[in-house]
């Protein structure tokens, strides 16, 4: 099962690597931005359309 921590978009917290942020680049019709949402390292990412395996 793929988890968030295996994803390129996952940035763990320094003091608590079990938690982190999912950071993604978005370009919408008006502007470009980076967005961030808190996730857990072990969250199931199997059905996440943005999942990118960390190399």
């Amino acid at each position: 099962m793929a988890t968030c921590k295996e994803c390129k978009n996952f940035f763990p917290l320094t003091d608590n690597p079990a938690k982190g942020d999912c950071v993604q680049r978005v370009v919408d019709p008006r502007q470009a931005y980076y967005k961030s949402k808190p996730v857990n390292a072990e969250d199931d990412a199997a059905s996440c359309p943005s999942f990118q395996k960390r190399s």
Binding site: V26, Q31, A32, Y33, Y34, K35, S36, K37, P38
Partner: peptide
């Protein structure tokens, strides 16, 4: 506040 998505525009 702890869980909402945040963003920074270019």
């Amino acid at each position: 506040l702890d869980n909402k998505t945040i963003f920074i525009t270019d």
